[in-house]
Design a protein around this nucleic acid. Structure first.
Lengths: 214, 214
DNA sequence: CCATAAATCAATCATATGATTGATTCTTGA
DNA sequence: TCAAGAATCAATCATATGATTGATTTATGG
């Protein structure tokens, strides 16, 4: 038995951090395509163009691999978010900016949102992942809540508007667009606009905030 | 090797239909608990208290098992729905009735909604299941749209309200509550009430529709 | 009562899959 | 230059898992 080492292509020796990034991206794409249940370490290794043993050298186990995907996906999402809502800024524009960021992430990085949705439901096996995702989505909804509360106090939104309930409504309605394997965004802005009309105080309607949209 | 047949408990011979129902329920509960990726034919057989061979006798394959779960879950959902919206009825009450039914299903049959959410994301492996779920959710959103359009024409909802967008907003916001493994309904009615306030035409607010709630 | 079909099960197969082992190749610092 | 560590891979293991086979048991119609 000849066990000499003669790969088709030369070795591409990389540092742990770089290799882990490649592995994470390969795994995230597979999860986005086939779901968590369709994740196979062999497939990840193949897509990352490394041997299965090399994968296990960098990532101890499949559970660790899923956790890695969850963490890197969250960080990638965080990097896309707009700066923290400015208390002095225009609440309406800020609300739309949040929606714009999520819209663009659905359009340009569907792997992120789809992977997130899948991981959130794959929770039972991985409580740590579930907790991390719950924390993230909770923080995101809280950004909406802060903006809404500020806008209500300024008379831009309805005085009888409940900021928390409205934030949950908005985040729920928008994240619904990220639940299909290939997001369809045709009704994204109509839904957001409808929600905004319902939030505005009487007499505040009509003004277009001239955002870039998508 | 002694291959005599001497089970611990006597056989419980059942007809195909009855056995398939038991199998479907066992599988649905496992999917609700562990997700589609955690579904094992052995576990289903064990929970249904039958042999793995008996399971395969009644359900050809694992894919067929998942399809069976999807169909029976949909039928169970349909059985819970209120009668078709009455064109002559009160749109506000009808809207709330739809929300009430979904609320109660989340409270009383979380396995149905959780299983549905999991199946929707497990789609890639099973296009037929994905199509069936997409059709069902589409029909559900269309019930909202019809009610909203009728209410707008009667002046109960805002004249500038977009029935389709509002329907997607509502169904998206409400189904968000069914996305966690164990639905938390604390904010269900606050979210619905907030959405309703945003939909009502000026001067229509305040009137309580005295529904049972949850 | 019995022959036939339906339903059930123990045992087994074939493959998939996560993980490990030990040898090999590359990198790096002195 | 070279020793030590880091990174990679081929081969293999141990188990999980979907599915099948053939014998056995129960139900049913005549």
């Amino acid at each position: 038995m000849d066990t000499t080492h003669s790969p088709e292509t030369p070795h591409a020796y990389l540092r742990k951090a770089a290799r882990r990034e490649m592995i994470a991206e390969a795994a995230r794409r597979i999860i986005a395509e086939k779901g968590v249940e369709g994740l196979r370490t062999r497939d990840v290794a193949e897509r990352a163009a490394i041997n299965i043993s090399t994968l296990h050298f960098h990532v101890k186990s499949k559970a660790a691999l899923i956790a890695l995907v969850a963490e890197t996906s969250r960080d990638a999402f965080l990097a896309l978010l707009p700066p923290d809502p400015d208390p002095a800024g225009d609440p309406r524009a800020q609300l739309r900016a949040e929606a714009q960021v999520y819209h663009d992430s659905l359009r340009d990085r569907p792997d992120l949102s789809v992977c997130f949705a899948r991981l959130a439901l794959a929770a039972p096996d991985n409580p740590a992942v579930a907790a991390m995702i719950a924390e993230f989505t909770g923080q995101w909804a809280d950004r909406f809540r802060q903006i809404l509360a500020k806008g209500r106090d300024r008379g831009i939104f309805r005085a009888d508007m409940d900021p928390l309930a409205a934030a949950l409504m908005l985040s729920g309605a928008l994240t619904a667009f990220g639940r299909s394997a290939t997001p369809v965004l045709r009704f994204y802005w109509p839904v957001f606009d409808e929600a905004e009309r319902g939030l505005l105080a009487p007499g505040q309607g009509g003004g277009d905030t001239t955002e870039p949209r998508g």
